[in-house]
Design a protein around this nucleic acid. Structure first.
Lengths: 154, 154
DNA sequence: ATAATTCCTTAAGTTCACTTGAGGTCAAAG
DNA sequence: CTTTGACCTCAAGTGAACTTAAGGAATTAT
């Protein structure tokens, strides 16, 4: 069964996007694409999935986890592939996210500058280690949240 | 055997830093601290390890992986815990790293701005997806690098 | 002396975004 | 019609930074 006009195989999609076959299958598992199947079980993607996966790749490059990207995609009416108009809307969200990350890093940099020469490196006094700001999503896996250690250090 | 004057147990160190016991043991495995052992095998840390681990936590917050932090620490003469002078030296390195990350995000943001309204989202034309810049260390695990997909998309 | 903590080790699980491999089926080309 | 290549499905591995669990041993408190 040869691919029909507007359908493409996983190999073609891989060639077009530069993604590995395995990655595309993984994206399917994650609900980012939903190919049909032929009678014998082979995947048949839509041509528009090239654009769809391009969007995924771009969003990833912007630092979004797949879960978030899936949400962005499913937020579109009937899970459509984003077009120019959608893109304008989505990009606003992306932009503010990006801005927030930049601001976070800049704040960190400023604190660092303030701390040079201080060298205290103690958790209760150092501006660099302040558990109050919720900026601790760097790194993955479970995280232990600091309690309120009182008392002096060292 | 009660902890001696300048020695503390893992529990005390955990309380002081807010780290879990398991995290501290893991840091030992990773060579970030090297506690002594009592005759019965319990760990005895130095008081200065509180400061040492504080440094680790701060550096982590700045986005450094443990491997890098270990290097920073071992670069100090005889693996000393960093003091004010060391900190000034190390912070220069950290600062440039931070600056680079900020610049990277800003570049991305500018591209995003340029792309809104374009909406092409095609890999060969979109400024947002340009595999040439080596800014792709986001995300972990093995990565497939894009080949030179020629041909038009969609 | 006994109960309650604290500490120990080792092994396996977690998340994310995939890859790699084994073993088998299907389709396009000679 | 057979070979080659494309495709399929699991299962398990990768790396970072840990956590959780199981099953003991040692220390501290009562």
């Amino acid at each position: 069964m040869p691919p029909r006009r507007n359908e493409i195989t996983i190999g073609a999609l891989a060639a077009r996007t530069g993604l590995a076959h395995s990655a595309i299958r993984y994206y399917e598992e994650e609900g980012l694409v939903q190919p049909e199947r032929t009678a014998t079980g082979q995947r048949r993607f839509l041509r528009s999935d090239i654009r769809r996966l391009s969007f995924v790749m771009i969003a990833q490059k912007l630092g979004f986890p797949l879960a978030r990207i899936r949400k962005l995609l499913t937020a579109l009416p009937d899970g459509r592939t984003p077009n120019a108009r959608d893109w304008a809307k989505i990009s606003a969200e992306i932009r503010s996210d990006l801005d927030a990350r930049i601001a976070e890093l800049e704040a960190l940099r400023d604190k660092l500058d303030g701390c040079v020469g201080c060298g205290c490196l103690s958790l209760d006094k150092c501006a660099l280690y302040n558990p109050d700001d919720s900026a601790r999503k760097l790194g993955n896996g479970p995280r232990y949240l600091m309690g309120d250690s009182s008392a002096d250090i060292d």
